[in-house]
Simulated scan of single mutants.
Amino acid sequence: MDVVRRHARELINSRLAPARPAKDGWQTCLQINHGITKGHKLSERERRYVVDITCRWIENEARAGRGPRRDPPLALS
């Protein structure tokens, strides 16, 4: 989980933490679901929180057996 946490931190720092990211859908989601107001640079505390909830979600999905979606192989005719 250390590698996942590191990648989550890198992703959040580069794409979500800036005050005005190119695509702010994630900031909107954070505002609606977690009360983190969009339009400001995320604090270190907010960044840690987002990494924690992201990793918790991944762990819960893995425990429930819901890994990455895999389409069935195509049948060859």
Rank of each mutant, 00 (worst) to 15 (best):
S77R: 11
R48Y: 02
I36Y: 03
V50T: 09
V50E: 00
L74W: 11
H7C: 10
C55G: 01
T54W: 03
A62N: 08
R45Y: 06
A22D: 12
A64S: 13
P72F: 07
V4F: 13
R66H: 15
P68K: 14
M1E: 08
D71Q: 12
L42Q: 02
H40S: 11
K23I: 12
D24N: 05
T37R: 15
L30A: 04
Q31Y: 03
I12K: 00
P68M: 13
I36K: 03
I53S: 02
M1L: 09
T54Q: 01
R69S: 07
G25P: 01
G25A: 01
L76N: 14
G67D: 09
L76I: 14
L42S: 05
R6T: 10
R63W: 09
L16G: 00
K38R: 15
R70W: 08
S14Q: 12
V4S: 10
A19V: 02
A75W: 08
E10S: 10
W26D: 03
I53Y: 03
A17H: 00
E46Q: 13
R6K: 15
I12D: 00
R69F: 15
A8D: 01
A62E: 14
R48V: 04
S43I: 05
G39P: 04
N13I: 02
L16S: 01
Q27M: 03
D71G: 07
L76Q: 10
W57G: 08
A19N: 01
A64M: 11
D2N: 14
I58P: 00
K23Y: 12
D71L: 15
C29D: 09
W57M: 10
G35T: 02
K23M: 07
K41P: 04
T54L: 10
R20L: 09
W57P: 00
L30E: 00
Q31S: 10
I12A: 03
S77M: 07
P73R: 14
M1Q: 08
R63S: 13
D2H: 10
A22F: 13
G67T: 07
H40Y: 02
R66A: 12
Q27S: 04
P21F: 05
L30G: 01
I53W: 02
I58R: 05
R70P: 00
D71R: 15
H7V: 05
G39I: 07
N60Y: 06
S43W: 04
G39C: 05
V3Y: 10
E59Q: 15
E59T: 09
R48A: 14
R20K: 14
A8N: 06
V50R: 01
A62C: 12
T37K: 15
G65A: 06
A8E: 03
D52T: 06
S43P: 04
K38Q: 15
S14R: 15
D52V: 04
G39N: 05
R63A: 13
W57I: 06
P18K: 03
A22V: 13
S77H: 09
V3C: 06
A62Y: 09
W26S: 07
Q27I: 02
L30T: 01
A64W: 04
